[in-house]
Nucleic acid binder design. Structure first.
Length: 430
RNA sequence: GUGGAUGUAGCUCAGUCGGUUAGAGCGCUAGGUUGUGGCCCUGGAGGCCGUGGGUUCGAGUCCCAUCAUCCACCCCA
């Protein structure tokens, strides 16, 4: 009887054991940098009231209008799988009065996000992000700190072709003035733009800067940019951020045409890009959101943060195929005759209790097959329960890298009380 | 939502002008060479040829539909 196979949903994927090393490396690197910069881990639910995102990200943004996974629960409430992390963190910040408790809240998170987009290279419907948020300070040096953390992580992950672009997109008042000037500039030329740009002109004119058509870019070459409409204070804020970045040796490029997709961003904005990704070249992006806390019902509080797409980071990382024959310190227990299974199992457990990785065959395979398995397990040693040696109460300890082996008393190993004693027993074969 | 490409073993792919038992390499597995892995040799398992329909004496191969995947656009990490 044949039954239809159930497959993973369009745009979702399994992260298989073969990828485990790289995911673990990213997780430990992010956690390490978070420690160094003193950001604490926070985890929020992956679904929230729909209103959190519509109000936070912006009713008109593309993400909210057509990409959210929204559903009703049994109480007829509208819920949404989170499309990004910042809104949830800010909600949590307000709900738990983090501002009153500690003044400045510095947190980081990691987990799956959901957007109903058409999948392609570096884009999925369920994808993973990690992000940092600092809520409560308008000091330009916190901008520099969080950009530095973002950059530092990419550096540790070996992304050598990364490029950091920074800009300031000002506050709503400045944006309004700029938008008028921009519209005055574009209006007489509008017929010459591509269809998409003409549509953007109606909905979100600034996004015209993101157009990939050379013709449109040429037309916009001398168009007014927000950067030139910044107030003195915001201009000074941005200059100070740049000054601090210079001082700590982080290289960046000012991109006055950089705009961000989510509506809550204000003032400082940045992206990190890699050439390895093809069309979806942004691996990380962030900015200030100085009005978001207030918009979500908290006291007026400035905030800043970034998020990075883990799948995209992986695409940008070097040497994904390598690292096959690395041996971990660990033991594979080989059984030469099934009558020793019980003793072998006891030794296995002992090794594990001493803190070493160890494994054994569970498929009843031949000695030769077990040796093969021991080889592929990546462990440094194998213990072999061989006939002749066992009659003398000895097992063979074999170094799987240089093939040297010697006998060792089973009772001696079982007596070892800690890793040091075990280490001494096996020490001279290393 | 729009456009283009591709679906054959666990993976990467052959498969002639439509022709009868569907192939390779890798991987998996049993064994040989040494009571003991890697190199080498021999055997074995594993395929609704994405799915449904059509043309034909005959379809993995041609046509249509459908589903899925990939790439690009929109948008974003």
């Amino acid at each position: 009887m044949s039954v239809d196979k159930i497959k993973a949903i369009y745009g979702t994927r399994d992260i298989l054991p073969a990828e485990a090393d790289i995911w673990r490396k990213i997780a430990t690197t992010v956690a390490k940098v978070a420690d160094e910069y003193n950001y604490s881990f926070i985890s929020t639910p992956i679904f929230e009231a729909t209103e959190l995102f519509s109000r936070g990200i912006g009713e008109t943004s593309e993400v909210v209008t057509k990409e959210m996974y929204t559903f009703k629960d049994q109480g007829d409430r509208s819920l949404t799988l989170r499309p990004e992390g910042t809104a949830s963190v800010v909600r949590s910040y307000i709900e738990h009065s983090m501002g009153a408790r500690q003044g400045l809240a510095k947190v980081w998170y990691a987990g799956p996000m959901f957007r109903q987009e058409r999948p392609q290279a570096g884009r999925f419907r369920q994808f993973y992000q990690f992000g940092f948020e600092a809520i409560g300070s308008l000091d330009p040096s916190i901008d520099a700190e969080i950009i530095a953390a973002n950059y530092h992580i990419m550096e540790l992950l070996g992304i050598d072709d990364k490029k950091l672009y920074v800009n300031s997109i000002g506050m709503p008042g400045e944006r309004k003035k700029h938008k008028e000037a921009f519209s005055d500039f574009v209006a007489p030329l509008i017929g010459k733009f591509c269809a998409d740009c003409r549509k953007r002109f109606e909905t979100n004119p600034l996004r015209m800067f993101d157009c990939k058509q050379d013709a449109c870019m040429a037309l916009l070459k001398d168009a007014p940019v927000i950067f030139d409409y910044l107030s003195d204070d915001n201009r000074k804020h941005f200059d100070t951020v740049c000054d601090f970045l210079d001082h700590i040796g982080i290289s960046y490029e000012l991109d006055k045409k950089l705009v961000r997709g989510l509506d809550y961003y204000t003032r400082t904005a940045w992206e990190i890009k890699s050439d390895k990704l093809g069309s979806q070249d942004a691996i990380s992006g962030g900015g200030r959101y100085d009005l978001l806390v207030e918009q979500l019902g908290g006291k007026p509080t400035p905030g800043i943060g970034f998020a990075a797409g883990i799948e995209r980071v992986i695409l940008a990382m070097p040497g994904k195929e390598s690292g096959q024959d690395r041996k971990d310190l660990g033991f594979f227990v080989v059984i030469g005759n099934s009558r020793y299974k019980k003793e072998a199992f006891g030794l296995l457990t002992k090794i594990r209790k001493l803190g070493f990785p160890a494994d054994i065959d569970y498929l009843g395979r031949s000695l030769k097959a077990q040796m093969k398995q021991a080889d592929k397990s990546g462990f440094y040693y194998s213990f072999i329960f061989a006939e002749e040696e066992m009659t003398r109460g000895k097992v063979i300890l074999r170094n799987m890298v240089d093939s040297r082996q010697f006998e060792i008393g089973l009772a001696d190993i079982l007596k070892a009380g800690n890793t040091i004693q075990l280490g001494e027993l096996i020490g001279y074969i290393q």
